[in-house]
Protein backbone atom coordinates (compact mmCIF):
# COMPACT_ATOMS: atom_id res chain seq x y z
CA UNK A 1 0.00 0.00 0.00
CA UNK A 2 1.42 3.31 -1.03
CA UNK A 3 1.68 6.45 0.95
CA UNK A 4 4.85 5.85 2.88
CA UNK A 5 8.24 4.87 1.61
CA UNK A 6 11.68 4.68 3.11
CA UNK A 7 14.12 7.50 2.70
CA UNK A 8 16.99 6.44 0.46
CA UNK A 9 20.67 6.14 1.44
CA UNK A 10 20.61 3.46 4.16
CA UNK A 11 22.99 4.13 7.01
CA UNK A 12 26.15 2.07 7.22
CA UNK A 13 24.83 0.42 10.35
CA UNK A 14 21.95 -1.44 8.75
CA UNK A 15 23.45 -3.92 6.33
CA UNK A 16 23.18 -7.16 8.31
CA UNK A 17 21.44 -10.11 6.72
CA UNK A 18 18.41 -10.09 9.00
CA UNK A 19 17.95 -6.43 8.15
CA UNK A 20 18.22 -7.09 4.44
CA UNK A 21 15.69 -9.91 4.69
CA UNK A 22 13.50 -7.60 6.65
CA UNK A 23 13.73 -4.96 3.94
CA UNK A 24 12.88 -7.49 1.26
CA UNK A 25 9.76 -8.44 3.12
CA UNK A 26 8.63 -4.84 3.16
CA UNK A 27 9.02 -2.40 5.98
CA UNK A 28 7.15 -2.79 9.23
CA UNK A 29 3.49 -2.19 8.78
CA UNK A 30 3.35 -2.95 5.12
CA UNK A 31 1.04 -5.69 3.98
CA UNK A 32 3.87 -7.54 2.28
CA UNK A 33 4.90 -9.30 5.47
CA UNK A 34 1.66 -11.08 6.27
CA UNK A 35 1.35 -12.02 2.61
CA UNK A 36 4.84 -13.47 2.75
CA UNK A 37 4.01 -15.39 5.91
CA UNK A 38 0.78 -16.62 4.38
CA UNK A 39 2.47 -17.90 1.26
CA UNK A 40 5.13 -19.54 3.36
CA UNK A 41 2.56 -21.21 5.58
CA UNK A 42 0.56 -22.33 2.57
CA UNK A 43 3.63 -23.93 1.06
CA UNK A 44 4.55 -25.66 4.30
CA UNK A 45 0.99 -26.87 4.69
CA UNK A 46 0.89 -28.27 1.18
CA UNK A 47 4.19 -30.00 1.72
CA UNK A 48 2.92 -31.57 4.91
CA UNK A 49 -0.22 -32.87 3.30
CA UNK A 50 -1.64 -32.56 -0.20
CA UNK A 51 -5.10 -32.52 1.33
CA UNK A 52 -4.47 -28.92 2.24
CA UNK A 53 -4.71 -27.63 -1.28
CA UNK A 54 -8.04 -29.32 -2.02
CA UNK A 55 -10.89 -26.97 -2.78
CA UNK A 56 -13.11 -28.34 -0.03
CA UNK A 57 -10.39 -27.92 2.56
CA UNK A 58 -9.60 -24.37 1.49
CA UNK A 59 -13.29 -23.53 1.62
CA UNK A 60 -13.61 -24.95 5.13
CA UNK A 61 -10.47 -23.04 6.08
CA UNK A 62 -11.95 -19.74 4.93
CA UNK A 63 -15.24 -20.39 6.67
CA UNK A 64 -13.70 -21.39 9.98
CA UNK A 65 -11.35 -18.38 9.85
CA UNK A 66 -14.13 -15.93 9.14
CA UNK A 67 -14.96 -15.38 12.80
CA UNK A 68 -11.37 -14.67 13.77
CA UNK A 69 -11.02 -12.34 10.79
CA UNK A 70 -13.96 -10.26 11.98
CA UNK A 71 -12.59 -10.20 15.55
CA UNK A 72 -9.14 -9.24 14.29
CA UNK A 73 -10.43 -6.33 12.25
CA UNK A 74 -12.03 -4.91 15.40
CA UNK A 75 -8.91 -5.58 17.42
CA UNK A 76 -6.82 -3.85 14.76
CA UNK A 77 -8.69 -0.59 15.33
CA UNK A 78 -7.90 -0.75 19.04
CA UNK A 79 -4.26 -1.66 18.66
CA UNK A 80 -3.71 1.05 16.04
CA UNK A 81 -4.28 3.68 18.71
CA UNK A 82 -1.93 1.88 21.05
CA UNK A 83 -4.56 0.26 23.26
CA UNK A 84 -5.63 -3.36 23.62
CA UNK A 85 -8.93 -5.22 23.89
CA UNK A 86 -8.67 -8.47 25.81
CA UNK A 87 -12.40 -8.90 26.14
CA UNK A 88 -13.44 -9.61 22.54
CA UNK A 89 -13.87 -13.36 23.05
CA UNK A 90 -16.24 -12.85 25.96
CA UNK A 91 -18.17 -10.18 24.07
CA UNK A 92 -18.44 -12.57 21.14
CA UNK A 93 -19.89 -15.27 23.39
CA UNK A 94 -22.17 -12.91 25.32
CA UNK A 95 -23.65 -11.09 22.39
CA UNK A 96 -23.99 -14.29 20.39
CA UNK A 97 -25.94 -15.64 23.35
CA UNK A 98 -27.96 -12.43 23.53
CA UNK A 99 -29.04 -12.72 19.89
CA UNK A 100 -29.97 -16.38 20.42
CA UNK A 101 -31.71 -15.64 23.70
CA UNK A 102 -33.83 -12.85 22.18
CA UNK A 103 -34.73 -14.94 19.18
CA UNK A 104 -35.36 -18.31 20.82
CA UNK A 105 -36.67 -17.49 24.26
CA UNK A 106 -38.51 -14.30 23.51
CA UNK A 107 -39.51 -14.71 19.91
CA UNK A 108 -38.03 -11.34 18.98
CA UNK A 109 -38.01 -11.05 15.19
CA UNK A 110 -34.59 -11.45 13.61
CA UNK A 111 -34.17 -7.83 12.52
CA UNK A 112 -34.79 -6.18 15.89
CA UNK A 113 -32.91 -8.95 17.70
CA UNK A 114 -29.77 -8.42 15.64
CA UNK A 115 -30.09 -4.67 15.73
CA UNK A 116 -30.56 -4.69 19.48
CA UNK A 117 -27.58 -6.96 19.92
CA UNK A 118 -25.30 -4.84 17.77
CA UNK A 119 -26.45 -1.58 19.32
CA UNK A 120 -25.99 -3.03 22.78
CA UNK A 121 -22.47 -4.11 21.92
CA UNK A 122 -21.54 -0.73 20.44
CA UNK A 123 -22.83 1.07 23.54
CA UNK A 124 -20.88 -1.27 25.76
CA UNK A 125 -17.75 -0.71 23.68
CA UNK A 126 -18.24 3.04 23.98
CA UNK A 127 -18.43 2.68 27.77
CA UNK A 128 -15.17 0.76 27.75
CA UNK A 129 -13.67 3.53 25.63
CA UNK A 130 -14.88 6.17 28.07
CA UNK A 131 -13.30 4.33 30.99
CA UNK A 132 -10.03 4.25 29.09
CA UNK A 133 -10.08 7.76 27.66
CA UNK A 134 -11.77 9.84 30.34
CA UNK A 135 -11.23 7.92 33.55
CA UNK A 136 -7.72 7.00 32.43
CA UNK A 137 -7.88 3.34 33.39
CA UNK A 138 -5.42 1.45 31.20
CA UNK A 139 -7.17 -0.49 28.44
CA UNK A 140 -5.42 -3.65 29.59
CA UNK A 141 -7.19 -3.39 32.92
CA UNK A 142 -10.62 -2.39 31.62
CA UNK A 143 -10.73 -5.09 28.98
CA UNK A 144 -9.42 -7.68 31.40
CA UNK A 145 -12.53 -6.72 33.32
CA UNK A 146 -14.81 -7.20 30.33
CA UNK A 147 -13.05 -10.47 29.60
CA UNK A 148 -13.99 -11.86 32.98
CA UNK A 149 -17.25 -10.02 33.41
CA UNK A 150 -18.76 -11.03 30.13
CA UNK A 151 -17.66 -14.59 30.46
CA UNK A 152 -19.86 -14.50 33.53
CA UNK A 153 -22.69 -12.88 31.58
CA UNK A 154 -22.49 -15.56 28.90
CA UNK A 155 -22.61 -18.27 31.53
CA UNK A 156 -25.50 -16.70 33.37
CA UNK A 157 -27.62 -16.20 30.27
CA UNK A 158 -28.97 -19.70 30.19
CA UNK A 159 -27.74 -21.08 33.48
CA UNK A 160 -24.43 -22.13 32.02
CA UNK A 161 -26.02 -24.06 29.20
CA UNK A 162 -25.99 -23.50 25.49
CA UNK A 163 -28.85 -22.00 23.49
CA UNK A 164 -30.15 -23.61 20.34
CA UNK A 165 -33.43 -23.54 18.46
CA UNK A 166 -34.55 -26.60 20.37
CA UNK A 167 -34.01 -24.95 23.73
CA UNK A 168 -37.73 -24.24 23.60
CA UNK A 169 -40.60 -26.39 22.41
CA UNK A 170 -41.72 -26.02 19.77
CA UNK A 171 -38.28 -25.23 18.42
CA UNK A 172 -37.71 -21.67 17.19
CA UNK A 173 -35.09 -21.43 14.51
CA UNK A 174 -32.45 -18.70 14.46
CA UNK A 175 -33.76 -16.23 11.92
CA UNK A 176 -30.22 -15.23 11.20
CA UNK A 177 -29.14 -18.75 10.38
CA UNK A 178 -29.17 -17.51 6.80
CA UNK A 179 -25.73 -16.14 7.57
CA UNK A 180 -24.40 -19.65 7.35
CA UNK A 181 -25.92 -20.22 3.93
CA UNK A 182 -24.24 -19.55 0.64
CA UNK A 183 -24.71 -16.93 -2.01
CA UNK A 184 -23.58 -17.83 -5.51
CA UNK A 185 -21.65 -20.75 -4.12
CA UNK A 186 -19.70 -18.74 -1.57
CA UNK A 187 -20.51 -19.00 2.11
CA UNK A 188 -22.11 -15.84 3.47
CA UNK A 189 -19.70 -16.04 6.36
CA UNK A 190 -16.80 -15.56 3.98
CA UNK A 191 -18.63 -12.72 2.26
CA UNK A 192 -19.25 -10.98 5.57
CA UNK A 193 -15.65 -11.42 6.71
CA UNK A 194 -14.26 -10.12 3.44
CA UNK A 195 -16.80 -7.31 3.37
CA UNK A 196 -15.92 -6.18 6.89
CA UNK A 197 -12.21 -6.26 6.09
CA UNK A 198 -12.57 -4.35 2.85
CA UNK A 199 -14.86 -1.67 4.27
CA UNK A 200 -12.63 -1.20 7.30
CA UNK A 201 -9.49 -0.90 5.19
CA UNK A 202 -11.14 1.53 2.78
CA UNK A 203 -12.16 3.73 5.69
CA UNK A 204 -8.67 3.61 7.18
CA UNK A 205 -6.93 4.36 3.89
CA UNK A 206 -9.28 6.76 2.19
CA UNK A 207 -10.64 8.84 5.02
CA UNK A 208 -8.67 10.94 7.50
CA UNK A 209 -9.68 8.49 10.23
CA UNK A 210 -6.77 6.21 9.40
CA UNK A 211 -4.16 8.91 9.86
CA UNK A 212 -5.91 10.10 13.01
CA UNK A 213 -5.90 6.66 14.63
CA UNK A 214 -2.30 6.02 13.64
CA UNK A 215 -1.17 9.38 14.94
CA UNK A 216 -2.61 8.57 18.37
CA UNK A 217 -0.68 5.32 18.45
CA UNK A 218 2.45 6.98 17.13
CA UNK A 219 2.53 10.14 19.25
CA UNK A 220 -0.66 10.92 21.14
CA UNK A 221 0.65 14.25 22.38
CA UNK A 222 1.27 15.39 18.82
CA UNK A 223 -2.21 14.31 17.82
CA UNK A 224 -3.76 16.35 20.62
CA UNK A 225 -1.61 19.35 19.82
CA UNK A 226 -2.85 19.53 16.27
CA UNK A 227 -6.35 19.49 17.66
CA UNK A 228 -7.45 15.88 17.18
CA UNK A 229 -10.05 14.67 19.65
CA UNK A 230 -8.10 11.70 20.90
CA UNK A 231 -10.65 10.81 23.58
CA UNK A 232 -13.52 10.57 21.10
CA UNK A 233 -11.41 8.45 18.78
CA UNK A 234 -10.54 6.05 21.57
CA UNK A 235 -14.21 5.67 22.40
CA UNK A 236 -14.83 4.96 18.73
CA UNK A 237 -12.29 2.17 18.41
CA UNK A 238 -13.60 0.28 21.42
CA UNK A 239 -17.13 0.65 20.10
CA UNK A 240 -16.00 -0.80 16.76
CA UNK A 241 -14.19 -3.64 18.46
CA UNK A 242 -17.20 -4.58 20.55
CA UNK A 243 -19.57 -4.29 17.61
CA UNK A 244 -17.45 -6.58 15.48
CA UNK A 245 -17.09 -9.03 18.36
CA UNK A 246 -20.87 -9.17 18.56
CA UNK A 247 -21.05 -9.73 14.80
CA UNK A 248 -18.56 -12.58 15.12
CA UNK A 249 -20.72 -14.05 17.86
CA UNK A 250 -23.82 -13.87 15.69
CA UNK A 251 -21.91 -15.46 12.81
CA UNK A 252 -20.67 -18.24 15.07
CA UNK A 253 -24.18 -18.89 16.36
CA UNK A 254 -25.53 -19.14 12.84
CA UNK A 255 -22.70 -21.44 11.79
CA UNK A 256 -22.91 -23.85 14.70
CA UNK A 257 -26.66 -23.79 15.00
CA UNK A 258 -26.17 -23.16 18.70
CA UNK A 259 -24.11 -20.96 20.99
CA UNK A 260 -22.13 -22.11 24.01
CA UNK A 261 -21.12 -19.75 26.78
CA UNK A 262 -17.56 -20.93 26.33
CA UNK A 263 -17.51 -20.11 22.62
CA UNK A 264 -14.36 -18.51 21.42
CA UNK A 265 -12.11 -19.19 24.36
CA UNK A 266 -8.63 -18.16 23.44
CA UNK A 267 -9.83 -15.98 20.60
CA UNK A 268 -8.89 -12.69 22.23
CA UNK A 269 -5.23 -13.61 22.21
CA UNK A 270 -5.48 -15.10 18.75
CA UNK A 271 -7.02 -11.87 17.48
CA UNK A 272 -4.20 -9.89 19.06
CA UNK A 273 -1.64 -12.27 17.58
CA UNK A 274 -3.32 -11.90 14.19
CA UNK A 275 -3.10 -8.11 14.38
CA UNK A 276 0.59 -8.18 15.31
CA UNK A 277 1.33 -10.76 12.63
CA UNK A 278 -0.50 -8.57 10.18
CA UNK A 279 1.94 -5.75 10.75
CA UNK A 280 0.48 -3.47 13.38
CA UNK A 281 3.04 -3.09 16.17
CA UNK A 282 1.96 -3.51 19.75
CA UNK A 283 2.15 0.24 20.23
CA UNK A 284 0.11 0.92 17.10
CA UNK A 285 0.82 3.81 14.77
CA UNK A 286 1.11 1.91 11.52
CA UNK A 287 -0.10 -1.14 9.67
CA UNK A 288 -3.17 -2.35 7.84
CA UNK A 289 -6.49 -3.94 8.65
CA UNK A 290 -6.03 -6.24 5.70
CA UNK A 291 -2.81 -7.40 7.33
CA UNK A 292 -4.73 -8.28 10.48
CA UNK A 293 -7.23 -10.27 8.44
CA UNK A 294 -4.38 -12.10 6.73
CA UNK A 295 -2.88 -12.76 10.14
CA UNK A 296 -6.16 -14.32 11.21
CA UNK A 297 -6.09 -16.46 8.09
CA UNK A 298 -2.55 -17.52 8.93
CA UNK A 299 -3.65 -18.69 12.34
CA UNK A 300 -6.49 -20.50 10.61
CA UNK A 301 -3.97 -22.27 8.40
CA UNK A 302 -1.99 -23.34 11.42
CA UNK A 303 -5.10 -24.77 13.03
CA UNK A 304 -5.94 -26.49 9.77
CA UNK A 305 -2.52 -28.09 9.61
CA UNK A 306 -3.00 -29.41 13.11
CA UNK A 307 -6.31 -30.97 12.13
CA UNK A 308 -4.95 -32.41 8.90
CA UNK A 309 -2.04 -33.94 10.74
CA UNK A 310 -4.44 -35.49 13.18
CA UNK A 311 -2.72 -33.82 16.10
CA UNK A 312 -4.65 -33.15 19.27
CA UNK A 313 -6.18 -29.68 19.36
CA UNK A 314 -3.86 -28.83 22.24
CA UNK A 315 -1.09 -28.38 19.70
CA UNK A 316 -2.88 -25.28 18.55
CA UNK A 317 -1.73 -23.48 21.66
CA UNK A 318 1.91 -24.36 21.07
CA UNK A 319 1.78 -23.27 17.48
CA UNK A 320 0.05 -20.01 18.31
CA UNK A 321 2.72 -19.39 20.93
CA UNK A 322 5.41 -19.91 18.31
CA UNK A 323 3.56 -17.64 15.94
CA UNK A 324 3.34 -14.98 18.60
CA UNK A 325 7.08 -15.12 19.25
CA UNK A 326 7.77 -14.77 15.54
CA UNK A 327 5.29 -11.93 15.34
CA UNK A 328 6.93 -10.21 18.25
CA UNK A 329 10.36 -10.54 16.72
CA UNK A 330 9.36 -9.29 13.31
CA UNK A 331 7.37 -6.44 14.78
CA UNK A 332 10.62 -5.14 16.22
CA UNK A 333 11.88 -4.72 12.69
CA UNK A 334 14.42 -6.95 11.01
CA UNK A 335 14.51 -9.76 13.53
CA UNK A 336 16.61 -7.72 15.94
CA UNK A 337 15.90 -8.60 19.53
CA UNK A 338 16.29 -5.74 21.98
Amino acid sequence: MTGISSAPAPSPYRQSLPALLGRAAGQEGSVRRPIAFLIGAGIIATLITHDFIRGSNLNELLISSSFLVVLSVGEAFVILVGSIDLGVESLMASFGMLAAWLTVFHGVPTGPALLGTMVGAVILGALVGLLVAKVHIPSFVVTLGTYWGFQGVALLTNGGSYISPSSVTPARPFGFAVLADSTLGVSNLIIVAVGVTVVAQLVITFTPLGAWLKSIGSNELAARRVGLRADALKVLVFAVSAGLAALAGIMMTAYQGSIYPTTGQGDSLEAIAAVILGGIPFTGGRGTVVGAALGALLIGIINDIIVLLGLPALYEYIFVAAVLVVAGLQARGGFLVK
Partner: peptide
Protein backbone atom coordinates in the same frame (compact mmCIF):
# COMPACT_ATOMS: atom_id res chain seq x y z
CA UNK B 1 9.56 18.06 20.44
CA UNK B 2 8.02 18.91 17.07
CA UNK B 3 4.64 17.36 17.88
CA UNK B 4 4.76 14.97 14.95
CA UNK B 5 4.04 11.27 14.57
CA UNK B 6 7.16 9.33 13.56
CA UNK B 7 5.21 6.44 12.04
CA UNK B 8 3.36 8.63 9.59
CA UNK B 9 4.72 10.05 6.38
CA UNK B 10 5.80 13.66 5.95
CA UNK B 11 2.64 14.61 4.07
CA UNK B 12 0.39 12.81 6.56
CA UNK B 13 2.01 14.76 9.36
CA UNK B 14 1.75 18.05 7.54
CA UNK B 15 -1.95 17.65 6.94
CA UNK B 16 -2.85 15.94 10.21
CA UNK B 17 -6.05 17.43 11.49
CA UNK B 18 -6.46 19.66 8.44
CA UNK B 19 -6.70 17.16 5.64
Amino acid sequence: DLAMAPDLSVWENLFLGEE
